[in-house]
Design a protein around this nucleic acid. Structure first.
Length: 424
RNA sequence: GCGGUUAUAGCUCAGUUGGUUAGAGCGCUAGGUUGUGGUCCUGGAGGUCGAGGGUUCGAGACCCUUUAGCCGCCCCA
């Protein structure tokens, strides 16, 4: 039995992996598609450290949240500082925005990131202790136009990679003016029912009352059927923001589902909250989550700056994509494979490989001195379209045998014109 | 943190009520073709049966412990 394994809840990403969420070629496709859209929408990349001082996350995400209470990878470094592997992407991006003064020119600053996220959780399908998110943050405008654009970005990303079946869930979670009023009303409503509710909801009543609403317990749902709705409590400003956003989404042709029970896990969200879910994913169906956070930049010590963003899970996107796709798992391949016979051919191989690569042709070869038959098999397995065969005869004549492995055709080509021939 | 379930070759899995030397398919490798892949045929390598302990004349199988995977709850991407 092997001694070392990837730590619990983590996974490798490698060439040829059968599961797409572990296949490095599929990862490349996702990331380059995301980057392409970022260029299209005007986002610039920010890369932040994978760890930050613990207090950044406590401050941003909120003490009462599950993430801060029990899911952070926190350690004391050798300088006696408390550090935490980032459990989400927004706080570090905002920290960097403030630290580097990226709010210079008075317009909207658009940032994106791609990187690992760490949360200490029990793993299951689509849930890891280290997973990767592509995320973006748009800072400097409180206009609902920006909300609409960000949401539409997320949806067009999924469409671009080939996921069509999606549910967009939308809600407004109010702001520091109106949310406390609602919270109070909800607590008043729930208190007499509390003894009848599930233990989970009794806990939520104390820790995070709004979360009671999305309990999956049918009995809880029955009890909360007539609970007050946040949407009836939001202030004038939040309400008109939400109205405007919805009409923009109609104009953009984006369908959504109003989910008044949608509550997200971070305390920093204000007004718009949204999730993109896939009906093809299993229990962990959320592909993307995001929302507006108008108080966060100030909370973290920057100037008063509204913002909105989202994070989307790369693994979950790939899991959903693979369940929907007929496509077989991709493998890496080269255009040509050099096969040698005898010492003289082997001796001249290095220069041949080098020349072909200089011409931009991807080539590989066998490094273990196998028989020609084995080398041909290796060429086949490498997915190569051509085999370039050289032996004593070819060295003497100054030309190679070029075999098309798809058609079986074989022609003699002078060394000097091999590259040109392979390009066509 | 809670619950269910699984662990045998590189991969997918067989392995009958405990009984010789633990099997198959795929993959890998060598040959059939002393210079030609994908099909076919033949041979070969590869497993302290997740780990530790126990019951037994005898354990891959039964019991306990432990570790890990998978799935669900919680929560989230």
């Amino acid at each position: 039995m092997q001694k070392y394994k990837a730590p619990p809840g983590t996974h490798d990403i490698f060439p040829g992996a059968a599961k797409w969420e572990e296949n490095s070629a599929k990862w490349g496709e996702i990331e380059s598609e995301f980057r392409r859209l970022c260029r299209l929408y005007g986002y610039g990349e920010v890369r932040t450290p994978v760890f930050e001082q613990t207090d950044l996350f406590v401050r941003a995400v909120g003490t009462g949240t599950d993430i801060v209470a029990k899911e952070m990878y926190t350690f004391i470094d050798r300088g006696d500082r408390s550090m935490t592997l980032r459990p989400e992407g927004t706080a570090p991006a905002i920290r960097s925005y403030i630290e580097n003064g990226l709010y210079g020119d008075g317009g909207v600053t658009k940032l994106f990131y791609i990187g690992p996220i760490f949360r200490y959780e029990r793993n299951q399908k689509g849930r890891y202790r280290q997973h990767y998110q592509c995320g973006l943050e748009a800072l400097g405008s409180s206009e609902p136009d920006l909300d609409a654009e960000v949401i539409q970005f997320a949806l067009s990303f999924y469409k671009a990679i080939g996921i069509e079946r999606l549910n967009l869930k939308l809600n407004t979670v109010g702001c520091p003016v109106c949310r406390p009023l609602y919270r109070k009303a909800l607590l008043e409503y729930a208190e007499p029912l509390l003894t009848d509710m599930s233990p989970d909801n009794q806990r939520r009543y104390i820790e995070n009352p709004l979360r009671m609403l999305d309990s999956k317990d049918p009995h809880d749902q029955e009890l909360l059927k007539d609970a007050p709705n946040l949407i009836d409590f939001v202030c004038e400003e939040c309400s008109s923001h939400f109205q405007r956003l919805q009409s923009l989404l109609i104009e953009l042709g984006v369908p959504w589902e109003l989910d008044t029970r949608l509550v997200r896990g971070f305390d920093y969200y204000t007004k718009t909250a949204f999730e993109v879910q896939s009906p093809d994913l299993g229990a962990q169906s959320t592909l993307c989550g995001g929302g507006r956070y108008d108080g966060l930049v100030q909370e973290l010590g920057g100037p008063t700056t509204p913002g909105i963003g989202f994070g989307l899970g790369i693994e979950r996107a790939l899991i959903a994509l693979q369940t929907l796709s007929q496509e077989s798992t991709p493998r890496t391949s080269v255009e040509a494979f050099v096969v040698t016979l005898g010492e003289r051919a082997r001796a001249s191989r290095a220069v041949l490989l080098s020349d072909l690569r200089k011409s931009g042709i991807s080539v590989d070869t066998d490094y273990s001195g196998k028989s020609i038959k084995a080398q041909m098999r290796a060429a086949d397995r490498a997915g190569s379209r051509y085999a370039v065969i050289i032996g004593d005869n070819e060295i003497d004549s100054g030309s190679a045998q070029l075999k098309n492995l798809e058609t079986g055709e074989q022609v003699e080509v002078e060394f000097g014109s091999l590259a040109e021939k392979l390009i066509n």
